[in-house]
């Protein structure tokens, strides 16, 4: 557990690889939003930055299926009140794709040399740090190549929208992001236009 007064910890790594990791959340349903930035320490003191690509809540035991617990009279949050064991038999997990790492104060927009160890803490990246890491959209090509549970375009759009909000509607940044997307998808207008529209209809 972090010693900071307001802990940034979201969960713990339960699967890991060079391209990213899966983490189990400390609290049921407390998942980081799609496209948001998280960090985890590498084995040699690096800090690895990753973008959240997927989230899921389900049974802790793959052999046990989730069944209906409620009715017309018992719904939503009240179900968790009535069934206190649910927090123990369900869990939320999320996946994140590595986009950069920091070693000795130097930020590199490359996949980390070593994947983060299992059971290490995954943390939310505070706003100031997130602004710094994402200032230049140099890592967008890594996200554009993403192959996973959701289409890469959805990931890019979610990420860009999330950052635009985080950065207080930073118009300059949004235009930098749009230019980078245009560069990546210059041979594929059919993909680029909907993507830009998703960010902001004025950009397309």
């Amino acid at each position: 557990m972090s010693e900071q007064p307001e802990s940034l910890r979201l969960g713990e790594v339960i699967e890991t690889s060079t391209v990213g990791f899966v983490a189990e959340c400390d609290e049921l349903h407390c998942l980081p939003p799609l496209g948001s930035l998280v960090s985890v320490n590498g084995p040699e003191g690096d800090v690895i930055y990753a973008v959240v690509t997927y989230g899921e809540t389900g049974s802790i035991d793959p052999g046990r299926r989730v069944v209906r617990r409620g009715s017309a009279d018992l719904r939503d949050q009240a179900i968790y009140q009535q069934n206190p064991e649910l927090r123990h038999v369900l869990r939320s997990v999320f996946s994140a794709a590595a986009i950069a790492y920091r070693r000795d104060d130097r930020l590199s927009y490359l996949l980390p040399p070593l994947p983060p160890p299992l059971h290490y803490s995954v943390e939310r990246v505070p706003t100031t740090e997130a602004r710094e890491v994402t200032d230049q959209p140099r890592y967008f090509p890594i996200l554009a190549q993403y192959r996973g549970e959701i289409p890469a375009d959805q990931l890019l759009a979610a990420h860009a929208r999330h950052l635009y909000e985080l950065r207080g509607h930073d118009r300059d940044w949004l235009e930098r992001a749009a230019r980078e997307l245009a560069r990546i998808f210059k041979h594929d207008y059919d993909r680029l236009v909907p993507l830009l529209e998703a960010l902001d209809p004025d950009l397309a």
Partner: peptide, 13 residues
């Protein structure tokens, strides 16, 4: 397993 029901529901497993 300890399951407490009522206005302060809790589970210990």
């Amino acid at each position: 397993v300890v399951l407490a029901y009522g206005d302060a529901p809790q589970a210990r497993m």
